[in-house]
């Protein structure tokens, strides 16, 4: 039973990871500074709920007001395009992203 559960867990993690790779690394290259973006969101929105909500809101309809990046950066590279993912998938991807990069879990 334990072996079965462990196997199932590993499978689901690897599937989640591959989903994240597929949906996110399509646009962002491997050297994208995910942790810097998480740091900026954390500095501005504090709690998990608010961070995830702000990310979802921005990815669904990106705007200058909602962006946490410096104005100079946006002027140089432009605003991100609207995410093609459906709401459910987008929320799942945000959850995975938060799990992987949140600062709270890195504190010891």
């Amino acid at each position: 039973m334990v072996k079965f559960l462990s196997f199932f867990l590993l499978l689901s993690i690897s599937l989640d990871a591959s989903e994240f790779d597929k949906n996110c690394f399509d646009c962002h290259s491997k050297d994208f500074k995910f942790h810097i973006i998480m740091n900026k969101y954390t500095l501005k929105f504090s709690s998990e709920k608010r961070i995830k909500e702000a990310m979802f809101d921005y990815l669904k309809s990106p705007s200058l007001d909602k962006s946490i990046l410096p104005l100079e950066y946006i002027q140089k590279f432009g605003l991100k395009e609207k995410s093609p993912l459906d709401d459910k998938t987008l929320r799942e991807m945000i959850d995975i992203y938060y799990e992987k990069f949140n600062l709270k879990s890195k504190l010891y």
Binding site: L43, K44, S46, K104, L107
Partner: peptide, 8 residues
């Protein structure tokens, strides 16, 4: 503020 490590 700001929320270092999310700390408010």
């Amino acid at each position: 503020t700001p929320y270092y490590f999310g700390a408010a």
